[in-house]
Amino acid sequence: MTNGIDLDELLIAHAAGHLGEAAALVVAAHLCLCPESRRRYRLYETLGGLLLEELPPEPLAPERRQRVLAVLGEEVADSAQPDRTGDDAGASGNPLPAPLRARLPAPLDCCPWRRSGALAELPLAAPPGEPARLRLLRLEPGAAVPAHGHEGLELTLVLEGRLCDGERMLGPGDLAIADASTVHAPRAGEGEGCLCLLCAA
């Protein structure tokens, strides 16, 4: 057993609220695309709720309750129904899951991509105080990322096309987790290229 992190640890870390914002965004996007992870994630959130309910209650000052009940009338109900189209990726011709779309400055093709050979990169604005870098990466068919290691956790979420990472062939919604012990040179599938979301510490 290595000290590396696996998908379940990532999901439970997200459920418990332990991920930084960049990693949390990648995991949220992954969840939009992967029903199996969604199922597990629900289990981990249920676990959180259960542990919350088991906690010995710590009473609030009585005036807190009065204050909250007093302002209820002023609170406008948020009547929006939950959106049931969570995995709508592709339905609108947009490959991006909602959490990511919300973070893009403009439609994908209008964004300031930085091209370098068969690779194009689009850095996404990092939230203040967030050490991890977040970016979109577009690879032309067969193009490879130069072999590299990592100082910390690197998450790669495939959004479109195929990405070959060592022995593993990743498709849309698949997540590759690399850490300090990983050296890899992911390569886009022949014939279709690849769009992925990367978060690196």
């Binding site: 914002e21 949220a28 969570g86 939230p127 967030e130």
Partner: peptide, 24 residues
Amino acid sequence: LRRERRPPEAEEVEVETEAGGEEE
């Protein structure tokens, strides 16, 4: 804890993640 400005969408994003296209 993060004291970060979050985009207003962040809350809805959470809902969508959760909703995940399952049965009505």
